[in-house]
């Protein structure tokens, strides 16, 4: 409900000269005007603000729409198809797309449409979950490291450097050996090998921001460390963090594809976009459609995620309000 603002201007010079200050001269305001957090416009929360801005971004909406559609199709599509992802039909192998098999069949006669959808489930899961784990671990780690600085920062960053220095493949091999090459281990492997980047970025941001005025002010006011960290520093770093996360999801999906390329990916007969595209690489000259569909799926998903990421970027950044 809008309240009109009344501002009374008092002519101090005039009054000082002529009036004796007595308590009775002071007009007591009623409690309604004692609000300190008074804002002259309709009050909305940060999130509502962001959502509104996000909705204005057409590309982001398209991206979000496509992604939701994709998730629905991947989740429910395979149940509607007469074929399963591991149904082998050796007499119908390597068929081009037809009415029966919308995306064609692979070298064992399995329906590619269902396999691409199942692949979508896996790839999206891997991408999102590992990016999220990445985000959480990296942000906490980088935040703590950047905020406390000094020796703690040094040690923590050295650990990050070590992790960086060991090639991803080694991690994956090790984890795959101990736990088998299932979705869980692939996610764990990707998340573990890539959180270091997030940590570095967050730490860099925190290092800069903690010297800024509002942080110093909060500290001076005696705010709790965690409060400063989370509410002020991290929330203000949200721009680069979001950009990084939206770069991480596709990167995770790519890492999974790369792992499949080198043979460490999801175990057969389960499919992921990565395994589908790398399996078809061998015969791409003979059956290019086998590579086209998984790659197209990856591309379109990347597009959508990027548009969404841009949308978030614009929406959450208070300095870019239009």
């Amino acid at each position: 409900m809008k309240q009109s603002a009344t501002i009374r201007v008092r002519n101090f010079e005039k009054e000082q000269a002529t009036i004796d200050w007595t308590p009775e001269l002071v007009e007591k305001l009623d409690d309604s005007e004692k609000d300190t957090g008074f804002i002259a416009i309709e009050s909305t929360t940060f999130l509502q603000d962001a959502w509104r801005k996000f909705k204005k971004n057409k590309l982001a909406l398209v991206g979000a729409g496509f992604l939701i559609l994709l998730i629905l199709v991947c989740a429910f599509g395979p149940m509607l198809s007469p074929y399963t992802y591991d149904q082998i039909d050796l007499f119908n192998s390597n068929q081009a797309p037809t009415a029966e098999h919308w995306f064609g069949t692979d070298s064992l006669g399995r329906d590619l449409f269902v396999r691409v959808l199942i692949g979508g489930r896996i790839s999206l899961t891997v991408g999102v979950v590992s990016a999220l784990i990445n985000l959480v671990i990296g942000t906490i780690y980088g935040g703590i490291s950047g905020y406390f600085g000094g020796r703690i920062d040094q040690i923590m960053m050295r650990i990050v450097d070590i992790i960086y220095s060991i090639p991803t493949m080694l991690y994956v091999l090790l984890i795959t050996m101990v736990f088998g090459s299932s979705i869980g281990t692939v996610i764990a492997a990707i998340a573990i090998s890539s959180w270091a980047g997030m940590a570095r970025i967050v730490r860099g941001q925190v290092l800069t921001l903690k010297e800024q005025e509002y942080a110093l002010a909060a500290k001076a006011l005696g705010a709790n460390t965690w409060r400063i960290l989370i509410k002020h520093l991290l929330l203000n770093s949200i721009g680069p963090i979001i950009v990084t996360v939206t770069l991480n999801i596709p990167a995770a999906i790519f890492s999974e594809a790369f792992l499949s390329f080198v043979g460490c990916g999801i175990a057969i007969p389960m499919a992921s976009w990565g395994t589908l595209s790398s399996e078809s690489l061998r015969t791409v000259m003979a059956y290019p459609y086998q590579m086209f569909f998984p790659v197209a799926a990856i591309c379109l998903t990347m597009f959508s995620l990027n548009f969404i990421g841009d949308g978030f970027n614009d929406a959450f950044d208070p300095r870019r309000s239009k």
């Binding site: 000259m285 003979a286 290019p288 459609y289 086209f292 197209a296």
Partner: peptide
């Protein structure tokens, strides 16, 4: 991508 698909086909 289609080009790749068609011309080999």
């Amino acid at each position: 991508l289609l080009l790749t698909a068609c011309s080999s086909g």
